[in-house]
Computed example of a mutant assay.
Amino acid sequence: MFKFSRFIAVVKARNLEFFRDKSSLGWNIFFPVLLLVIFSFVFSGEGRAVYKVGVLNQAETQHPFLQTKFIDFVNYADLDKAMVKLDQHEIDLIIDQPEQQYWVNEESPKSYMVEKIFIYEANGFQRMVTAGKPIRYLDWVLPGIFGMNMMFSCLFGVGYVIVRYRKNSVLKRLKATPLSALEFISAQLLSRLFIVLFMVSVVYIGCDLFFDFIMLGSYLDLFIIAVVGAMSLISLGLLISTRSKSQELVGGLLNMATWPMMLLSGVWFSLEGAPQMVQAVAEIFPLTHLVSAARSIITEGATLSDVSYQLIVLSVMTTGCLALSAKLFSWDGDR
């Protein structure tokens, strides 16, 4: 029989448990404020840009057109990379002031319109033409969706499991065995890596049969990027869960890691033309480098040498997080 007094006692006990957990209480107050600050900074300004123009060696360019409002000007050092973006309708115009040339995509309506704006200040620029159909947004966003799925699986799949092990005294029993912290952490990494790569591969192959995804690069290169990226995300999850046995605290820390990555890692929209501060913050997230490298391979046909910077950054992050996890790991919980 339902007894109201017992019900109230449980509600009161749970409320006291939550409000006495200062870390969880603080996180529930701090996290919404953090999201509001991020959104207000990222989407601040006088209005969203209507067009996106690539500028070769922008630091050396002083053309008056660069002061035009509501146009994002993206710096490129490599013409070939900029041409790929123009062919795929990701940018609308390319300007090369030293050579007095500009390129348009004759199959892009936005390229046509931004050229009409530019020619009033062209001052003798030579018109160069390219043509190319846009890639589907589905193909462009594909690396972001799979990267985000890997992020949640890696972080929460490792973080919650270790906290549960610690809370249920499983780790305390393992401590009595010859198993070292590094061995335990490495085993968790390998197990989660196999699960994540297996599930992502199955989903990708199955979806490819229906959607016929574009692939301009190598599947082997893409797999290597997925392996290195997943290891980096798993090691971050291990680091977050090294000491605490509070599921609410670790859940808050995992959300603190996942939400900024989901918003600022180029999952849903390109960071080209974003404020420099936003791009600098995005560089600290492993998901940024995973998505960037995978997208370059899929949509631009990049090779491993082309994405070597992302590979190096992800490898350094993995090594650093694993070393810190092994050093700080606690079998018993907070000390």
Rank of each mutant, 00 (worst) to 15 (best):
G54C: 07
G54W: 03
G54K: 03
V55T: 08
V55M: 10
V55Q: 06
L56N: 02
L56Q: 07
L56G: 02
L56H: 01
Q58D: 02
Q58H: 00
A59R: 13
A59V: 07
A59K: 14
A59Y: 09
A59E: 13
E60M: 13
E60P: 00
E60G: 11
E60L: 14
T61R: 03
Q62R: 13
Q62H: 14
Q62S: 13
Q62E: 14
H63D: 13
P64N: 04
P64K: 12
P64L: 12
P64M: 06
F65R: 05
F65M: 06
L66V: 03
L66W: 01
T68D: 03
K69D: 15
K69H: 10
F70Q: 14
I71M: 00
I71A: 02
D72G: 07
D72T: 13
F73L: 04
F73P: 05
F73D: 02
V74D: 06
V74Y: 03
V74K: 10
N75F: 06
N75V: 08
Y76R: 04
Y76D: 05
A77I: 01
A77H: 14
D78N: 14
L79E: 11
D80N: 12
D80R: 12
K81L: 13
A82F: 02
A82N: 11
A82C: 10
A82I: 08
M83V: 12
M83W: 00
M83H: 10
V84G: 08
V84H: 09
V84C: 02
L86M: 11
Q88M: 09
Q88V: 08
H89N: 13
E90W: 10
I91P: 11
D92T: 07
D92I: 03
L93N: 07
L93R: 06
L93T: 11
I94A: 10
I94Q: 08
I95V: 13
I95Y: 04
D96C: 01
D96Y: 02
P98V: 04
P98N: 02
P98E: 05
P98R: 10
P98I: 04
P98Y: 00
Q100W: 01
Q100T: 05
Q100P: 00
Q100F: 05
Q101W: 00
Q101I: 09
Y102Q: 04
Y102S: 08
Y102T: 10
Y102N: 01
Y102F: 15
Y102K: 03
W103C: 09
V104I: 15
V104D: 01
N105A: 10
N105E: 06
E106G: 07
E106F: 02
S108I: 02
S108L: 06
S108Y: 02
P109S: 11
P109V: 06
P109D: 06
